[in-house]
């Protein structure tokens, strides 16, 4: 199994690598197009801000490269959001793989903090990404923007409103939560992705 983690200016690359190592996998962290294209699995991590991340990808032509990948791709957090059509975060056009929109959480209830930070349940699973994961399992989230629910939604979460906890279209998968930090539930989801 040849797994690649796309290297770009995202914060959680190391955590994703260590999570793979904990389940006995290895991965190469790279922005080399040929290594990314020839990988069996590609992980597209992300912690940061949408417009800066998109600009970084574009400058290196990684935006086109990612969109044209044929093997299973897993976007995590900002990685998933960048795979959507558009993000309200600094009004950023994104990769357009998923039709869903990325919008900002807004609430007038002061006890609902933004960004959402912590453990929340995920439910309404579709696809093999959630094999052996019980409905309403807990996953770790840190985000101020969310993807709307649409045709590509394969898991949901409630915070302020119901939104996409995970998306899938063809070979492209995205999760809003951090499987690399979501204890045994996260490890199972990473294993499932590797097994796709």
């Amino acid at each position: 199994m040849n797994t690649v983690i796309i290297q770009y200016n995202a914060g959680n690359i190391q955590s994703v690598l260590y999570a793979l190592e904990r389940i006995g996998m290895t991965a190469v962290v790279t922005d080399d197009p040929s290594l990314i294209q020839s990988a069996d699995k590609v992980i597209f991590p992300g912690v940061g801000e949408a417009s800066t991340a998109m600009q970084y990808l574009k400058e290196r032509n990684l935006d086109v490269l990612i969109s044209e990948l044929k093997q299973p791709v897993l976007g995590i957090c900002l990685g998933m959001q960048l795979m959507c059509r558009h993000s309200e975060e600094n009004n950023t056009p994104c990769l357009g793989i998923f039709d869903e929109q990325v919008q900002k959480f807004t609430t007038s209830i002061p006890t609902l903090k933004i960004p959402q930070m912590g453990w929340n349940t995920i439910c309404d699973f579709k696809t093999d990404l959630f094999t052996s994961v019980p409905e309403n399992s807990f996953a770790y989230f840190v985000h101020g923007y969310y993807a709307t629910i649409g045709a590509h939604t394969i898991a949901k979460t409630d915070y302020i409103l119901s939104y996409s906890a995970a998306l899938q279209k063809d070979n492209f998968y995205g999760v809003q939560f951090h499987p690399e930090k979501s204890a045994l539930v996260g490890e199972q989801i990473i294993k499932n992705f590797i097994a796709l």
Binding site: Q14, R22, Y140, V142, H178, K181, S182, A183, L184
Partner: peptide
């Protein structure tokens, strides 16, 4: 620690 721990 990061190698061992699967929570934030």
């Amino acid at each position: 620690i990061a190698h061992k721990i699967n929570i934030p």
